[in-house]
Amino acid sequence: MLPEYTRSQLALRNGQDRDEIWVAYKGEIYDVTKSRLWRRGNHYEHWAGQDLTEELKDAPHTEYVFDKFTVIGILKK
């Protein structure tokens, strides 16, 4: 079973406060630390450490972009 993290804990994994770079999508937290597109904790106008579920609607790609990343936790409701 995957660990659960609060939004506050997710926010710390923004690539600035800690080395980890995480984003959430549909309740799952993904580690995007190794992605060159998230290297500084941001990807275009999106910032790591956040739930990107609503923002994906405006992205030029689909949710399948998350398939290449590992789910490392669940976002607490």
Results as ranks from 00 to 15, higher is better:
residue 1 M to N: 09
residue 1 M to P: 09
residue 1 M to C: 12
residue 2 L to T: 07
residue 3 P to K: 14
residue 3 P to F: 11
residue 4 E to D: 11
residue 5 Y to F: 14
residue 5 Y to H: 08
residue 5 Y to R: 12
residue 5 Y to D: 10
residue 6 T to F: 06
residue 6 T to C: 01
residue 7 R to L: 01
residue 8 S to R: 10
residue 9 Q to N: 13
residue 10 L to F: 12
residue 12 L to H: 10
residue 13 R to V: 06
residue 13 R to Y: 06
residue 14 N to Y: 04
residue 16 Q to A: 12
residue 17 D to I: 04
residue 17 D to S: 09
residue 17 D to K: 02
residue 17 D to M: 00
residue 18 R to K: 13
residue 18 R to T: 07
residue 20 E to M: 04
residue 20 E to A: 12
residue 21 I to N: 00
residue 23 V to G: 02
residue 23 V to M: 13
residue 25 Y to Q: 11
residue 26 K to S: 15
residue 26 K to P: 09
residue 27 G to V: 08
residue 27 G to M: 15
residue 28 E to K: 14
residue 28 E to W: 06
residue 28 E to M: 10
residue 29 I to W: 10
residue 29 I to R: 14
residue 29 I to E: 13
residue 29 I to D: 14
residue 30 Y to N: 15
residue 30 Y to M: 14
residue 31 D to A: 03
residue 32 V to M: 10
residue 32 V to E: 13
residue 32 V to Q: 08
residue 33 T to L: 09
residue 34 K to E: 15
residue 34 K to Y: 02
residue 35 S to E: 13
residue 35 S to D: 13
residue 37 L to S: 12
residue 37 L to A: 05
residue 38 W to G: 01
residue 39 R to P: 00
residue 39 R to W: 03
residue 39 R to I: 03
residue 40 R to A: 06
residue 41 G to W: 09
residue 42 N to D: 10
residue 42 N to I: 07
residue 42 N to Q: 13
residue 42 N to F: 07
residue 43 H to E: 15
residue 43 H to P: 05
residue 43 H to L: 12
residue 44 Y to H: 15
residue 44 Y to A: 05
residue 45 E to Y: 00
residue 45 E to W: 01
residue 46 H to N: 05
residue 46 H to T: 03
residue 47 W to M: 07
residue 47 W to R: 08
residue 47 W to D: 09
residue 48 A to E: 11
residue 49 G to I: 00
residue 49 G to K: 00
residue 50 Q to M: 11
residue 50 Q to L: 02
residue 51 D to C: 02
residue 52 L to V: 07
residue 54 E to N: 10
residue 54 E to Q: 09
residue 55 E to D: 09
residue 55 E to G: 11
residue 56 L to H: 04
residue 56 L to Y: 00
residue 57 K to T: 04
residue 58 D to S: 07
residue 58 D to I: 00
residue 60 P to C: 07
residue 60 P to G: 07
residue 60 P to M: 03
residue 61 H to F: 04
residue 61 H to D: 09
residue 62 T to W: 11
residue 62 T to R: 15
residue 63 E to Y: 08
residue 64 Y to H: 13
residue 65 V to S: 08
residue 65 V to C: 03
residue 66 F to P: 05
residue 66 F to Y: 14
residue 67 D to L: 07
residue 68 K to M: 14
residue 69 F to P: 06
residue 69 F to T: 08
residue 70 T to V: 05
residue 71 V to H: 07
residue 71 V to A: 10
residue 71 V to E: 15
residue 71 V to P: 06
residue 71 V to Q: 15
residue 72 I to R: 12
residue 72 I to T: 04
residue 73 G to Q: 12
residue 74 I to C: 02
residue 74 I to G: 02
residue 77 K to I: 01
residue 77 K to N: 14
